[in-house]
């Protein structure tokens, strides 16, 4: 049952990303990378390997639609790889059992820090791999920062709406 729900989220997020969000270039720069919400929300007791396999298939699906084979896959795998460390860093010490990362379970401050670090990491790797040069440093940094901010806004909005349910 849990897998079916997760698969639904997977398909919805891929379609949302490739049909809507990839076409948003707010002020020429910011593109929401909302699909990593899927990686953020996977339960904390999932193994790192499972997480990376989910991330790889998610990234590859996005890539197939946006003509960038491997780009999002490489980035998502890296984000998934780092997630357990970052989650342990920002979640409260006494939570040892399984939980789904979110505002309700972690508190706003912890969740905010956890999200911003992962989103920043993701945007950083994605943009570095995409441009593959450091020639235009200011543009690159601006793109990373704007992607991070707009993705963060999306994730915080959606998570706060889901929490109320």
């Amino acid at each position: 049952m849990q897998y079916i729900i997760r698969l639904e989220w997977f398909i919805i997020l891929v379609l949302l990303q490739v049909l809507v969000l990839n076409h948003i270039h707010f002020e020429q720069y910011a593109t929401p990378l909302f699909y990593i919400y899927f990686l953020l929300k996977i339960d904390s007791d999932n193994s790192r390997k499972g997480l990376m396999l989910w991330a790889f298939s998610l990234g590859l699906c996005i890539d197939i639609f946006s003509n960038t084979p491997g780009l999002n896959a490489a980035t998502a795998v890296c984000t998934a790889f780092c997630r357990p460390w970052i989650l342990r860093l920002f979640s409260l010490r006494d939570i040892t059992d399984n939980f789904e990362p979110g505002m309700y379970q972690m508190g706003f401050a912890s969740f905010f820090r956890y999200t911003i670090v992962l989103v920043l990491l993701h945007a950083f790797i994605l943009n570095i791999l995409d441009t593959f040069s450091l020639a235009n440093m200011p543009t690159l940094l601006l793109k990373i920062a704007s992607d991070t901010i707009i993705t963060l806004i999306f994730i915080l909005c959606v998570d706060s709406v889901r929490r109320k349910k």
């Binding site: 193994s47 990376m52 790889f56 890539d63 491997g70 896959a73 790889f81």
Partner: peptide, 20 residues
């Protein structure tokens, strides 16, 4: 072993990216 999986997946992705 999760390190090996990580390296394997990254190699697959990057190969796809650069060979495309």
């Amino acid at each position: 072993n999760h390190w090996f999986l990580f390296v394997l997946l990254e190699v697959i992705s990057l190969t796809l990216l650069f060979r495309f």
